[in-house]
Amino acid sequence: MTGSVAGRTNGGHGRLGRVLSGLAVAVGCVLFLGGFAWGAVEYLPYTVPTDSMDPTVKAGDRVLAQRISGDQVRRGDVVVFKDAEWGDMPMVKRVVGVGGDKVACCDAEGRLTVDGKAVEEPYVGRTPGGLASTTRFGATVPKGQLFLLGDERGGSLDSRVHLQDQGQGSVPRSSVTARVDAVAWPPSGMVGRPAAFAALPGGVSEPGPVRLLVGAVVLGALLILGGAAYEPVARRLGGARRTGRTGGEVPTGAR
């Protein structure tokens, strides 16, 4: 009688375990596939062709760029854009000025200034003398336009070389298609929002949902693996318990 009750109890536990493992796999599939689907809608993969954004992003890096409209762009954003006067091909640069800004370089300490306020730029690659630009410049950004620089200020072809163009080197906000959030390969983590621009009007943009997407995919994968592993682990443990109760051998009289 006792063995019968124990059998029913173990059977009940087994059924509950199978239900929970199936639920874990189902939820895991939703998170895993949903994370990839959300990422495909939200993000644009892009391979950076040059070192103009070094050291933030290097040539050949694969980045995740969130699809945005031009009116969402803030100072400090690293954006993907395309403009006919810049060669009509996708490019990656950092926004340092928006419509109405007076952007100049360099002040007495070699820093970039926006409306006369110095901007600390720890992301800029080394230049001779530690200057924020190898060439001095000044421009007033027209309304609805963006002034863009590469982080590798020694060799980047950016707004500085287009100062004689209409718009003083700037590009329309509408030319922006995405904002870089992270370097996916080789894995280098998030591309941060520079704190130096936070004090200026409009502040900086909020980080995109890339962390949530990665978290959903990783958690989904763990749930799928854990749920799928339940049945074989439960069978192995059940077999070990039965062997332990019989002493590991079948009694001679029972053969």
Rank of each mutant, 00 (worst) to 15 (best):
M1K: 13
T2D: 12
T2E: 10
T2M: 11
G3H: 04
G7E: 05
T9L: 03
G12Q: 00
H13F: 05
R15H: 02
R15A: 12
L16Q: 08
G17I: 00
G17Q: 01
R18V: 07
C29S: 15
F32D: 11
G34T: 00
F36G: 10
E42W: 05
Y43T: 04
T47I: 11
V48K: 01
P49E: 04
P49W: 07
S52P: 05
A59F: 00
I68A: 01
S69P: 11
S69Q: 07
S69K: 05
V73C: 14
D77N: 01
D77H: 09
V79Q: 10
V92G: 03
V92T: 03
R94A: 00
R94K: 05
V98N: 04
G99D: 15
G99R: 11
G100C: 08
D101M: 13
R111H: 09
L112E: 03
T113R: 15
K117V: 14
E120I: 07
V124D: 15
V124S: 15
G125R: 13
R126E: 01
T127D: 03
P128F: 07
G130R: 06
T134F: 01
F137R: 03
F137G: 00
A139S: 15
F147N: 13
F147P: 12
F147K: 08
R153H: 01
G154A: 06
G154K: 09
G154P: 14
G155E: 12
D158K: 00
S170I: 03
R179L: 11
G192N: 03
A195V: 00
P201A: 08
G203P: 05
V204I: 13
S205F: 03
S205Q: 04
P207W: 07
P207L: 09
R211W: 10
G215E: 10
V217W: 05
I224A: 06
Y230H: 09
E231F: 04
L237Q: 12
G238H: 00
G239P: 03
A240N: 12
R242D: 11
R242T: 12
T246V: 11
G247P: 12
E249L: 06
T252V: 15
G253D: 14
G253Y: 14
R255Y: 14
